[in-house]
């Protein structure tokens, strides 16, 4: 069996002495889409950042495809939160998508015809080819999200990490993103996605990870998405209503 796409053992992170994540341990099998669910302040984004090495954990071991992060660099793709992107930067859609190829160019390399074709193909697949020469602030929210997905595609990573990709995106784009993720999964890629929308969680994700400072449950969506596990993770701040097709959930104020 191939190595897990991501393996995290005993991860603990503190900000200013206050623990944000305590002893987080899980593994992601390749070829599945996992959603991270949890209340605000549960440490969902922190988990992604720690996994990517953007902040220093107090303890814990992180391995991608059985290797330390530095050796798995090209195989991991990160799609930032839309609010974290500088939309006023002077770049066009084509520039951003081509950036996905920079990792393999080295410091002084120039993009080859192959790199440009990969970028074109990625834009075509996301349906943004005709937007190629737009400056990125001239796009709608959905088009912006597609631009970054095209970049991830052009990079050709095997593990895609996304932070709240559906915020500020219209329903059509949300469906398109999910369809694309499912397509990528069927081609063998793995995805880990931070999300806060419980309504769609079971439909979008193969596996779920319930997180609130520590891991409350992890496994196939149908098994994890239970009223008991959810209210344990959300600390009673949830009113869980059971419907015909399983659990429908309402967030209490």
């Amino acid at each position: 069996m191939s190595a897990p796409a991501l393996e995290i053992r005993g991860l603990s992170v503190r900000y200013d002495q206050a623990p944000v994540l305590t002893d987080v341990t899980f593994t992601l099998a390749p070829g599945r889409i996992t959603g991270i669910l949890g209340p605000n302040g549960a440490g969902k984004s922190t988990l992604l950042k720690a996994a990517l090495g953007l902040l220093k954990p107090d303890a814990g071991e992180i391995r991608f495809f059985g290797e330390p992060r530095a050796r798995a660099r090209g195989r991991v793709v990160y799609v930032p939160q839309r609010s974290a992107v500088d939309w006023d930067f002077p770049v066009t859609v084509a520039d951003v998508v081509l950036m996905g190829r920079y990792g393999r160019l080295g410091l002084l390399g120039r993009p080859s015809r192959e790199d440009r074709e990969a970028a074109q193909a990625a834009m075509a697949q996301l349906g943004i080819l005709e937007l190629a020469s737009r400056q990125i602030s001239e796009l709608s929210g959905g088009q912006q999200q597609r631009t970054f997905l095209a970049r991830a595609l052009a990079q050709g990573g095997e593990l895609i990490l996304m932070d709240e990709p559906f915020v500020g995106v219209d329903a059509r784009t949300e469906e398109a993103i999910v369809a694309l993720l499912h397509q990528l999964r069927d081609a063998g890629r793995t995805a880990l996605i931070v999300n806060h929308d419980l309504q769609t969680a079971r439909r979008y994700f193969d596996d779920l990870l319930l997180l609130n400072r520590r891991v409350f449950a992890h496994g196939p969506s149908a098994e994890v998405f239970t009223p008991e596990a959810l209210s344990a993770c959300y600390g009673g701040r949830l009113a869980v209503l059971s419907g015909e097709d399983g659990a429908a959930v309402v967030l209490a104020p």
Binding site: R73, P80, D86, F89, V96
Partner: peptide
């Protein structure tokens, strides 16, 4: 443009 992406 994207310090995080650059680091990765």
């Amino acid at each position: 443009f994207d310090p995080v992406g650059a680091k990765l």
